[in-house]
Amino acid sequence: MTDAALETFEIAFKDVFGRAPEGTWAAPGRVNLIGEHTDYNDGYVMPFALPHRTRAAVARRDDGLLRVHSAEMDGGVVELRVADLAPGTASGWATYPAAVLWTLREAGHDIGGADIHYDSTVPVGGGLSSSAALQVVTALALTELAGLDLPRQELALLCQRSENVYVGAPVGVMDQTASACCTEGHALHLDVRGLGQRQVPFDLAAEGLELLVVDTRVKHAHADGAYGELRAGCEAAAAALGLPALRDIPYAGLDDALRALPDDRLRRLTRHVVTENRRVEEVIALLDAGRTREIGPVLTAGHVSLRDDFRISCPELDLVVDTALASGALGARMTGGGFGGSAIVLTDTAAAPALTATLNAALPAARIFATTPSRGAHRLS
């Protein structure tokens, strides 16, 4: 961010709250390269941070009030009493910062009130973790202003709890971890069970490649029940097999596990999770070997699994994937929670302009942009 852009953002805070902020922070959205719906099954995921991010200018308050304002949201300043925060007491977008503050206090951290002004370039409802970016930037700002130096993974876990308990969405920890922990030029291999991390070099330009994000602008909501039903189904399948999680099924033992399950729905969910964990391992091996272009078919196989086994794609996402592949893309798949949102398309750089035009013609409402692995949450000033 340029000094001028940062100054303009901090002036906007002053215009809203009548004083200067104590600091400004940023946290990115994310794209999940591979490893979808595996996080709440104790499996493997591989996201990277987008250059699109949510910014927060923040100043502490000593009167027990949390006041939040967003440049993107209507309704002006939302004012909440910190002492009154509890699950179910806030509504709208302000639920997310309220949830973070409540969770930090529940965890024993002495966090008081604050004035916070936000803006964001992360597409809302695009499956690119706009809510996680909002949570993580809030948590990082509030803890640093309070003099706390929490490990990034702990920060991500607190943000996950805020969404699970306060917001009521049973999400896994991938989105918050990606926003908090990703590094520029890398995809993050996260083993959710042990929370082990490895930053895997992901250099598209070195091989003349580009990754397009296609936001279909079809909206979805994790808290609408569908996501929770999928998670409950996976947990039921693991319980039927006497396992802690579907992650515990080895790829070589998949057929035996499927035969032991009582119905087709549980078999489909299980097949996706086990094969998706395998696809994460395949992508890592290819990236480590410098064979980035060869991950394309693995990405496409992931989309087929999400479409046919998990059944969380939609006509717009399928149209993007089918059109991209028919136009010469190396691979494509939906990314994110499903039921709308975005797809990613791997293509040769030279072919990207024509492919973008073709996709725009097929889905005129879509927002399409090229992306590169970017920096996780950090302080700007």
Rank of each mutant, 00 (worst) to 15 (best):
D3F: 03
A4Q: 12
F9Y: 11
D15I: 01
V16C: 10
G18P: 08
R19S: 13
R19L: 10
R19V: 10
R19T: 13
E22L: 13
T24H: 03
A26H: 10
L33V: 06
I34H: 00
H37D: 04
D42R: 01
Y44F: 15
V45H: 01
L50E: 09
T54A: 04
T54F: 01
R55V: 05
A56G: 05
R60K: 14
R61G: 09
R61H: 11
R61F: 11
D62V: 05
H69L: 03
A71G: 12
D74W: 00
V82S: 04
D84T: 11
P87L: 08
G92K: 10
A98D: 09
A99L: 05
T103M: 07
E106C: 03
A107V: 00
A107K: 07
H109A: 03
I111L: 07
D115N: 14
D115T: 06
S120T: 13
P123I: 01
G126L: 00
S129E: 09
S131E: 11
Q135S: 15
V136T: 06
V137P: 10
T138P: 13
A141F: 13
L142T: 10
G147F: 05
L155I: 03
Q160I: 08
V165G: 03
V173K: 12
A178I: 04
A180E: 09
T183R: 15
E184A: 15
H186D: 13
H189R: 14
L195Q: 14
G196P: 07
F202R: 10
D215I: 02
T216N: 08
V218T: 14
K219G: 04
H220E: 03
G225R: 11
G228A: 14
E229K: 12
E229F: 00
A232K: 11
C234I: 02
A236T: 04
A237F: 01
A245W: 04
G253A: 12
D256L: 02
R259P: 01
L261K: 04
E276P: 02
R279V: 00
V283N: 10
L286S: 08
A289F: 12
G296Y: 02
P297I: 02
L306I: 03
C314A: 14
E316D: 11
V320W: 03
V320F: 03
L325E: 09
R333P: 07
G337P: 01
F339W: 15
F339V: 04
A343N: 03
L346E: 09
A350R: 14
A350P: 11
L355K: 06
T358P: 05
N360G: 15
A361I: 05
L363I: 13
A365R: 15
R367A: 13
I368N: 05
I368P: 07
F369S: 13
T372K: 14
T372W: 12
T372R: 15
G376S: 11
A377C: 13
H378L: 12
R379I: 09
